[in-house]
């Protein structure tokens, strides 16, 4: 059920990002999924979604995938230093990820989009924290 819900979220994020709103929804969802699931299949998901986004936005296929997997690697490496499952971490990584995303792929209104992406990343984290996940169940965390 969790994975089905995630699949729907990722599909909606791809559609919104490539059609209507210039915000990195997929990047933020990947970040939050990494925080809660902490498994390596996130890289495969990031790879596939990046290729789809490149196809729909007329970028070179593989550009966005490369960005996503490098970003996810940093998130995983960061796990060794600090606690991941906090809204502060989610906000910080949303900010950093979106900053470099807009730097690499361009933006209309850099500062406003950056702020919006940080807020949305934090909201995604809060929404996910209310849903029971395998990690939450294992550690009996609400």
């Amino acid at each position: 059920m969790d994975k089905f819900f995630l699949a729907i979220c990722f599909f909606l994020a791809v559609m919104l990002e490539t059609t209507v709103i210039q915000l990195p929804f997929v990047l933020l969802l990947l970040l939050v999924t990494t925080i809660f699931y902490r498994t390596e299949w996130i890289f495969i998901v990031g790879l596939i979604l990046g290729i789809i986004i490149d196809g729909l936005t007329f970028r070179h296929l593989g550009e966005t995938s490369l960005f996503y997997i490098i970003f996810l690697l940093f998130v995983f490496l960061y796990e060794q230093k600090f606690e991941l499952k906090t809204v502060a971490f989610a906000a910080l990584m949303s900010f950093v990820g979106s900053f470099f995303f807009f730097l690499v792929f361009g933006s209309q209104v850099f500062i406003l989009q950056l702020i919006a992406a940080t807020i949305i990343g934090s909201l995604f984290f809060l929404a996910f924290s209310r849903i029971k996940t395998p990690v939450a169940k294992k550690y009996n965390v609400e």
Binding site: W41, G55, L66, I69
Partner: peptide
Amino acid sequence: LFLVFIFCAIVAFFTLFFISDSRGYIQTVF
């Protein structure tokens, strides 16, 4: 973790340099 990352990075590089003409299929589906 690093093995999966390296595998994905190789696929991404391969796609970037060798498969640039497949956007049409993705666009048609979506």
